[in-house]
């Protein structure tokens, strides 16, 4: 295959993903209901892709398109099922008979804190979030979480001041707001979690002496001379240093 053909072949193979498929090529269809209106869409698409196929152009409800940002919160029901389900539109394939709406925003008030001045103590959560005492352990938040986190458990851990547990259980939170929207006690879970993680990140570990030393060395100019010499070197000399460094890397990164 010639050089030119390689790139042409790749572009051709990718084209359905980037430019969309032709109607004639679609073999499987699904009916979905966007805010009550029926649309027939290709069954292989995510909710987000399907809505775009149907003609919606996102301003809200679309961010990273990869499951990290929490912008595309979607709630839906399936025909014949009373359960109200939640999903990230970019990470969920459409299903026949899906009735859906997107929630681009969840109204939430965030208390302000100063990480320097907040005490790392049992009662800190309740001081900023007195409403967590209203948790009745109904577990609706957990069932609403599209990341499958144990949301109610971390609120319970917050009630007893367990920063570590809050951090571990909430770490994968994408702050989509579904928990807060569904909570009968009107807790804004993801802010509670954010507070807990920051406090644990700041106070849960001893200060790293090696890092502190490195920072103070840099400020003292310990590496200035080495850099001065490096910057003066010509490309060949730099290539040699680089090669040597690469050649010796195994003894430093083994067991990586």
């Amino acid at each position: 295959m010639s050089k030119k053909d390689i790139m042409g072949e790749i572009a051709k193979a990718n084209s359905s993903v980037i430019k969309g498929v032709d109607k004639s090529e679609i073999k499987h269809w699904a009916n979905i209901y966007i805010m009550g209106q029926r649309y027939e869409v290709p069954a292989d698409l995510t909710i987000m892709q399907a809505m775009e196929y149907a003609g919606f152009r996102f301003i809200h409800s679309c961010g990273c398109r990869a499951g990290f940002c929490g912008a595309c919160s979607t709630i839906y029901r399936l025909k014949g099922d009373y359960r109200l389900k939640t999903a990230m539109a970019c990470q969920t394939r459409v299903e026949e008979g899906m009735f859906l709406v997107q929630l681009p925003f969840s109204p939430a008030v965030k208390p302000r804190w100063n990480i320097e001045k907040t005490g790392y103590e049992d009662g800190a959560f309740l001081a900023y979030f007195p409403e967590i005492a209203r948790c009745v352990s109904c577990n609706t938040c957990t069932k609403a979480c599209p990341q499958d986190l144990q949301v109610m458990d971390y609120i319970q851990a917050a009630l007893r001041g367990d920063f570590k547990k809050v951090s571990e259980l909430s770490f994968d939170c994408i702050q989509c707001g579904m928990c807060a929207v569904r909570c009968p006690a009107e807790i804004v879970h993801y802010h509670v979690a954010q507070f807990g993680r920051e406090m644990y990140g700041r106070y849960g570990y001893p200060r790293n002496a090696v890092l502190d030393k490195r920072v103070s060395d840099i400020k003292k100019g310990v590496y200035d001379k080495e850099f001065k010499d490096l910057v003066k070197k010509n490309k060949d000399e730099l290539v040699k240093i680089y090669k040597d460094q690469l050649a010796n890397k195994d003894k430093f990164i083994k067991g990586g």
Partner: peptide, 28 residues
């Protein structure tokens, strides 16, 4: 140092030191 001071939770080992991994093209 700034980020950990603000509370960013980097991966840590049992003793609290950072977990450090190699990456493509790094010699450490």
């Amino acid at each position: 140092q700034w980020m950990t001071g603000l509370g960013v939770l980097f991966d840590r080992m049992e003793d609290g030191d950072f977990v450090r991994l190699p990456g493509g093209g790094t010699s450490r």
